[in-house]
Design a protein around this nucleic acid. Structure first.
Length: 321
DNA sequence: TATAAGGAAGGTC
DNA sequence: GACCTTCCTTATA
């Protein structure tokens, strides 16, 4: 892939990779479809041989929404044989020639790359919004570095690694080599280095591509527009909750819609939602008791209320999406 | 024990 | 003043 910074290859720990073809793509998909999760390599587990492109931003496989990727992977694992061309009679149309197949494959790979890059940018954008940090790690303060580390811990279910990088700003972090990351954390140094590399690559991509050229699905969302149009405003709790709800592939384990049309949602993991809110607001002591108090403040303001049939951890936006 | 509801005081912007 | 954050008491499942 061309998106890595010079000299920084995406290792097996990178959340971005294309796995080797599975003997049966459909079976491979079914193997994983019921339990969507970060790459096993990121969790220190052996690779499974499912076919597809993992998009860490949404915890999805590319083929889920892009059937053409599935078509591409359904071709035999072995490269096309040249014997077909040789055995054809002179003057006969070669359909398709090895060269043409190669071009098609190359085109498909380009499409995959473009799609993955787009998803990575969306992922970074979301994280930046939620954490209130700059996309470029070089611009991060010590506090931003800690936020990013806490975020990465949460995203990949790591043990506490943020304490290993205290008093470091973004420049310090970026100046570290992969070996230095491993020195700080033997088990997860590679992963953190690879993830940081992705952020740096994303920042480089952002510089190359003006934001107006990068339209995403979230651009159609009025709530995202609301937040994007007022970047200097501190994010409100209801906006934060909405952002989590709008990323169900990533956050459905901690918060999800029960009835999106009516704006009814359930907090599945109160401690985790509170922790995420605490990271976002830089309030390490945040807990669900305090977060729920803030939610209750919305009752009077008519932003959030309890549904008609009150249930524990279930709330309702007064104005649905 | 965890959650729900709301009062009160204080901090930050 | 708006919007939380923190602490508290009381009630409920």
């Amino acid at each position: 892939m061309s998106m890595g910074s010079p000299g920084c290859e995406h290792t097996a720990y990178s959340p971005l990779y294309i796995s080797p073809p599975h003997s049966d793509a459909r079976i491979a998909w079914l193997d994983e479809a019921d339990d969507i999760k970060p790459p096993r390599s990121l969790l220190g587990l052996p690779e499974l041989s499912w076919t597809g492109v993992y998009l860490p931003c949404n915890n999805i496989l590319a083929m889920e929404e892009n059937p053409w990727v599935l078509r591409m992977t359904e071709s035999p694992a072995a490269p096309p044989s040249r014997t077909l061309e040789v055995s054809q009679a002179p003057g006969q149309t070669q359909t398709p020639s090895y060269e043409m197949e190669g071009q098609v494959e190359e085109h498909c790979l380009e499409q995959v790359q473009t799609m993955v890059e787009s998803e990575v940018l969306k992922d970074v954008d979301t994280a930046c919004k939620l954490l209130n940090i700059a996309p470029d790690p070089l611009d991060w303060s010590c506090v931003h570095v800690q936020k990013w580390l806490l975020w990465t811990e949460h995203l990949y279910r790591l043990p506490q690694v943020s304490t290993l990088f205290q008093e470091m700003n973004g420049k310090d972090l970026c100046s570290m080599t992969e070996a230095e990351f491993r020195q700080r954390s033997l088990q997860f140094g590679d992963m953190l280095y690879a993830n940081l590399d992705i952020w740096r690559s994303a920042a480089a991509m952002k510089e190359r591509c003006p934001p107006e050229d990068r339209k995403s699905a979230a651009d159609d969302d009025s709530w995202s527009d609301l937040i994007r149009n007022y970047p200097s405003q501190p994010i409100h709790l209801w906006q934060f909750l909405r952002e989590l709800l709008l990323k169900p592939h990533t956050y459905s384990r901690c918060i999800r819609w029960l009835n999106k049309e009516k704006g009814i949602f359930k907090i599945e993991d109160s401690a985790l939602v509170a922790r995420l809110w605490g990271i976002r607001k830089n309030r390490p002591a945040m807990n669900y008791d305090k977060l729920s108090r803030s939610i209750r403040q919305y009752y009077k303001k008519g932003i959030i209320r309890k549904p008609d049939v009150s249930r524990r951890l279930v709330y309702q936006f007064v104005k649905p999406v």
